[in-house]
């Protein structure tokens, strides 16, 4: 069974960077796909990769990660300015972050216009346990 956990930005807003990373990774390590409202900072994204590497063992193979930014280069300057302003005032709550455990999510294909999430064949992974 595939489980999605939606995390509103307010749930991580007041946490430290490490706290945010630990919270999101903990959910992914429970074999759930995290849908986070908004995004982590660039530094936090890198820290998430680092912390994930520290957690990898025979049972946990890591994560698949994709971030849908609120703006693209194709957006008008007014739109880009508006979103930047919202981010400054309200935190990185625009956009969407997907974090899936590698045992569940095989691949996240990201195209500027769409995101496709491919799941693993569970029978194959069960053999490992």
């Amino acid at each position: 069974m595939l489980t999605l956990e939606i995390v509103p930005y307010r749930e991580i807003e007041k946490l430290s960077s490490l706290g945010r990373i630990r919270k999101l990774l903990k959910i992914a390590m429970e074999n759930k796909i995290v849908l986070l409202e908004g995004r982590l900072s660039r530094e936090e994204e890198t820290e998430l990769i680092k912390t994930t590497m520290e957690e990898i063992d025979d049972e946990f193979a890591g994560i698949e990660l994709a971030v849908i930014p609120p703006t693209s280069d194709k957006d008008s300057r007014v739109m880009q300015f508006r979103n930047t302003l919202v981010n400054i005032l309200a935190g990185n709550r625009l956009g969407l972050t997907i974090i899936g455990p590698a045992s569940v999510v095989k691949e996240i294909k990201k195209d500027p216009s769409k995101i496709q999430l491919f799941t693993q064949d569970n029978n194959k992974k069960k053999k490992r346990r």
Partner: peptide, 17 residues
């Protein structure tokens, strides 16, 4: 390969920062 992978974007974004 697909250049839009999050690892590529994260690395380059960090370098920019």
């Amino acid at each position: 390969k697909d250049p839009f992978s999050q690892v590529n974007i994260t690395i380059i974004g960090n370098l920019a920062a």
